[in-house]
Computed example of a mutant assay.
Amino acid sequence: MKILLIGEYSRLHNSLKEGLIMLGHEVILLSSGDHFKKFDSDYSFHPAFLSGYWLPRKIKNILYKLTGINLEKAERSLRFFLLLPQLKNFDHVQLINSDAIETFPFLSRILYKKIFKKIKNRSLLICGDETPVIDYLLKKESAYSILTPYFEDNSLKEHFEYPLKYTTKDYRKTFDWLVENCQNLVASDLDYKIPMEKMGYSVHFIPNPVNTLKIEFQEQKINDKIVIFLGINRSSYIKKGIAYFEKALQIIQEKYAKKVAVIITENLPYEDYIHLYNSAQIVLDQIYANDQGYNALEAMAKGKVVFTGGGKEFMDHYNLKERININALPDVDSLVNELSFLIENPEAIITIGKRARAFIEKEHDYINIANQYLASWNSKTIS
């Protein structure tokens, strides 16, 4: 098969591409690189002109402040349009999200229609904020979610502009149009599978692919100090509950000044981010989750102890009897207690790290996951 993957937010599509290629398929990936993260892509629609030069960037920012219009969205759609003539003879196309091109919804629909005229087999991946997911979270039926800070303080609404946009009329129209014009919906983890099913959608649940051939497992060695890593993405700071980690780290640094070293980074390109967290034994990923995002999975594959989603629903789904990560709750005392246990019992870091790697190899192997995608594309969830 010749497969087109559109969009990249986490390296999910890159790893899926690697698995599909290993199975003998031809794969082309289009993306913007996701801003500062700079993920690999075969063809890019990154807004290089408006983001890469001082004067255009200044004009863009002024226009946005005056009108709320984001010119980068227009540049992405133009660059995507110019790529269309090169996109020929594909057997399947998958979108990473209903906003895979990261442009205005009406332009997304125009460009999707042009792509879909050429490619008859299509799938939509649910691996982040999406219309039914946000609709469900707004019902407040779960104990906590990425919207919890917004529920607790409505003055934070501007910080939730990205997830809440999916409930607006134009974004909802795009999602509904895609449901009508794709054969499959695929959910990448429990944080999306559960809401989609609660909102009445049938989805193929396929865990994130992780290429363990590229990620070397290193049994954790405890030296003079245990290294704790916190990588901050400023745009998702609040919805990932990073403030809880920061408060917990302040207490831990005072309590174990001679036993720990802390690395905190912000808005780093993917390659730099990975390089810096390699020295850590413990990685603080996110609060408000039932499952693991991509950064957490890669850290687990390296044998690190990751604070992320890992509660009862997750443990039950995978039939796990022992912890393969630390379930990070929105509770500073809980985080401090979990960190303190690991610092005082460093052998637990080694044990959990080994379990984490074994879990990734069993449930997230990129070739096995690629096979699951191929099977899903031949089995409709949307009739």
Rank of each mutant, 00 (worst) to 15 (best):
N267V: 08
E347A: 03
A257F: 12
R323Y: 05
I326S: 04
E313W: 01
A280R: 10
N295H: 14
E322H: 13
D331K: 12
N337T: 09
Q281V: 06
T351V: 08
I349D: 06
T351F: 03
Y277W: 12
K304E: 01
E322G: 05
Y277L: 01
M300W: 08
K312D: 13
D331N: 14
A296R: 07
E344D: 05
P346H: 00
I264Y: 00
K259V: 04
I264P: 13
I343Y: 06
D285K: 02
E322W: 00
F307I: 10
V332D: 01
K304N: 04
E271Q: 08
A296L: 07
Y288L: 10
H275Y: 02
S279R: 15
D272Y: 08
A289R: 09
V305W: 05
T265S: 05
Y273E: 04
M315H: 02
P269V: 08
H317M: 04
I282L: 07
F307R: 01
A301H: 08
I274G: 06
Y270E: 06
V336P: 06
Y270F: 09
Q281W: 02
I326M: 10
F341W: 11
F307W: 05
I263A: 00
N267R: 02
G311Q: 00
I282T: 08
L284T: 09
V305P: 02
G293K: 05
Y273D: 01
G311N: 00
A299D: 06
A328F: 05
A301E: 01
E271L: 12
V283M: 03
L339N: 10
E344I: 12
A280I: 07
N325Q: 01
L320G: 08
V260Y: 04
